Amino acid sequence: MTRIPLHENASLSRNELLTLKADIALWARELGFQQMGVSDIDLGEHPQHLADWLEQGYEAGMAWMHEPKRVAPADLVPNTQRIISLRMDYLPAEPRIHEILGDADRAYIARYALGRDYHKLIRKRVQKLADRMAEAIGPFGYRAFVDSAPVLEKAIAAQAGLGWAGKHTVIINRQAGSYFFLAELFTDLPLPVDEPVSSHCGTCSACIDICPTQAIIAPYVLDAGKCISYLTIEYRGVIAEPLRRAIGNRIFGCDDCQLVCPWNRYAQASQEPAFTPRHDFDGPPLLDLWAWDEITWLSKTEGMPLRRMSYASWLRNLSMALGNAPASADIVQALAMRRDELSASGMLNDVLTEHIDWAINEQTLKLHAAQ
């Protein structure tokens, strides 16, 4: 480790900053990150892209996307000069994506959400990185972010050379695909910056063509109100019937646009044990999950990204998946019993009633058609 004393009002030479940057990249790898890049606070064309997107109303009511500081890093963290952008792979060793999506009796959960909640884990790693930097140069100004606060993380990653925004709006790396988390360290250190990489999507439209709900309405333009990830995680209301059928057995998030991306043939399995699938969430039977009461759900999902949704949303999403499952009298019985139980306990709201009744009707129609 190179130790560079940094006293108050002192400045580092360019050679010292280059050495420090190389050390930061090494420390980041030792902490489990696969790549590090540095950008300045000019986010290029990305703020205008965000403004155009918001003007079209594609944020689906996510008011926090309108925060002005999102496109002004120095306003969010005063004195910021550079942003260290980091990525960490999360793909399980055996993704089983095709297998589970092809079995409508099983629940599909986005691959990033199968293990421990990445927010705390990665934030602790970023803090350790900052601590190592402080050991080398003395106190400096910084603030860490992991999918939190108004940070335009994908734009920052693109500006730092970690990849480019694909037509599905997810960051793609030529050597690693797109199955990775992002984190940022805002700092007042004038580190040398990396160059953005050019787009390599070419004429490919696989992600646009595969989207079950046609949420990618144009290259690089996502209508969040149609996106399965938004609908199953962020949205708490009634989901339109055509979208219910398109959601299939996806009960938390969606990976379809990444699944078909040619660059993901280079995706690497995560080496982080915390991201290993927990509690048999990797393709569990829908009826098994439907039987969980709230206490069981809270216990099973503790410390996982699945807590981003509520128990009511969990039941709503499961009821849609059960309605989309192959015809089964057992499913009809399980849906009806749980509806009665929820009603008796006072947990049955209008949203759940709508989706459970829809699922019962879908199953009933399939059973009649099969006779």
Rank of each mutant, 00 (worst) to 15 (best):
K120Q: 06
S178Q: 03
I100W: 03
F180N: 01
A107P: 00
E184V: 06
A130N: 10
E135A: 03
G115R: 12
L152H: 06
D105V: 02
F186K: 11
F186Q: 12
A144R: 08
I122L: 15
A110Q: 01
S148N: 13
F145V: 09
R174I: 06
K120L: 11
L162N: 13
A113E: 04
G166D: 01
I100E: 03
A176S: 08
K154E: 14
D103G: 05
M133K: 00
E153M: 11
V170T: 11
A165Y: 09
G102N: 12
T187I: 09
K124F: 08
W164L: 14
S148M: 08
L101P: 02
R116Y: 03
A176F: 11
Y179H: 05
P150M: 14
L162P: 05
D188N: 14
G138C: 00
M133L: 07
P139H: 10
A165D: 03
H98Q: 14
G166E: 02
A155E: 01
V126Q: 10
Q175L: 09
I100N: 00
Q159G: 01
G102T: 01
Q127G: 07
K124D: 15
D131W: 11
G141D: 12
Q159E: 03
I109R: 07
F140Q: 02
T169N: 03
F181H: 09
L152R: 02
A157C: 06
W164A: 14
A157T: 02
A130M: 06
G102S: 12
M133H: 00
V146F: 09
H119I: 11
A144F: 00
I137S: 02
F186R: 11
K154R: 15
E184Q: 14
Y142A: 02
E99L: 06
R106D: 00
A158E: 05
D103R: 08
Y142I: 06
D131T: 10
G163T: 07
Y142T: 04
H119T: 13
L152C: 11
P95C: 10
A183H: 09
L129A: 03
L189S: 04
